[in-house]
Design a protein around this nucleic acid. Structure first.
Lengths: 212, 212
DNA sequence: AAAGGATTAGACTGGACAGTCTAGTCTAAC
DNA sequence: GTTAGACTAGACTGTCCAGTCTAATCCTTT
């Protein structure tokens, strides 16, 4: 379980959130409260001692997982390509993992029923990640490593390329999620850099090696 | 309603599928059978005269909408860029419309409960579209208009760029879906062509390889 | 006009499930 | 040992809903 690691198994509250996270990822919000309680080795009443309702429990799960889904972008020392590679690998690992896909499925499924929850998740999760990436790309543009462009567009495009169609593929096709594939990330990042490379300066290399 | 147009409103069967499509798009499979019947101005029993169960009705809705979601790629006469533009505009229009998003939400939400249905949809819908696009891109590569590359990769990348992050944005953020934006498609397609342009291409020079 | 098929309203069944209640158990602190 | 607080098992309520059943009605065809 990637999404929650720091849980004291002797603590009911933690065990409940852990169990609920797993169950909601597997079955979505439709999963019964009973299943969560059983998974946590706890009586149903105990669950209600800790959370006023199923919706609150769901909210708590989303809230805690949101933080765990943020993808780091540090590594100022590295060059742009290396930074994007590390980011891309981490991003894909979370988004295309079995947990990431299940989480996404559950949240999308309930985004009509819990609109404010979904919006909050989006703002504090994906949108945060996008904002940080945008900063990195904007700096690279300022340095002349990337051609000047709308940084919102540049950010969205990279994020789209990294998971876009594949997320849908694994959500719908029934195939089990892919192994992490750093080579594919390299292909994508190089592709991206080729499209966004500065027209003048080629100080930022966009190796063609990884495009077969 | 984009997804179903050719329905005789005097025909119960058609009206039921139409109503079910709308209701499932709005509320997902959780929507009650009663709501579908009311929307179709039909008694609940009549619905069961036409469809043996709710699941069958859902399957029928998916089946019919799948065809409507296919995006055409004809226009052999045009140049590659124009063809991709027209494709991109049509593709985004369907994928990012309110109906397209609702449909996607409903299907993703139930892809665990109806795995074979989701897989069939995927194979005969998105995967079909991807296969056609792949053919177009492969031809362009053969003609030397695009650099030689894995055509699966080239296809996935374009499809990702066209909707990827934005689909998630509109599914989760609660914002209402965007107006069609041909300018954005043009931006994306040009971006894509820059990344996949033939290396000897004149109008879209790819960055040269330099010291890593 | 009669017949047959489709449609209708509404009652009904059975199952699932969120949430409550109760009576009892366990444990740790004093 | 007593007490307080957390936990447990399981019965119970109320709601929602898929799917069935029935008896009446409407429409079309002959």
């Amino acid at each position: 379980m990637v999404l929650l690691a720091d849980h004291d198994p002797s603590d009911c509250h933690s065990r409940l959130i852990q169990a609920a996270t797993e169950v909601f990822i597997e079955e979505g919000y439709r999963a019964s409260i009973e299943r969560v309680a059983v998974r946590a080795n706890v009586a149903r009443q105990t669950l209600y001692n800790h959370f006023p309702s199923k919706a609150d429990l769901f909210g708590e799960v989303i809230k805690q997982a949101t933080a765990a889904l943020l993808v780091t972008l540090d590594g100022k020392a590295e060059g742009l390509r290396e930074r994007l590679l590390r980011f891309g690998i981490a991003f894909r690992a979370k988004a295309l993992s079995s947990e990431g896909l299940g989480f996404y499925r559950a949240l999308v499924a309930e985004s009509k029923r819990f609109p404010e929850l979904a919006a909050t998740f989006y703002r504090t999760g994906p949108a945060q990640t996008a904002a940080r990436l945008r900063g990195v790309l904007q700096e690279a543009m300022d340095r002349g490593e990337l051609r000047p462009a709308d940084s919102e567009f540049a950010t969205t495009t990279l994020l789209s390329m990294l998971v876009g169609a594949e997320r849908s593929h694994f959500l719908l096709s029934g195939e089990s999620p892919p192994e992490p594939d750093p080579a594919r990330v390299a292909q994508l990042v190089d592709c991206y850099l080729r499209a966004f490379a500065s027209e003048i300066s080629h100080s930022n290399p966009a190796p063609q090696r990884s495009v077969p």
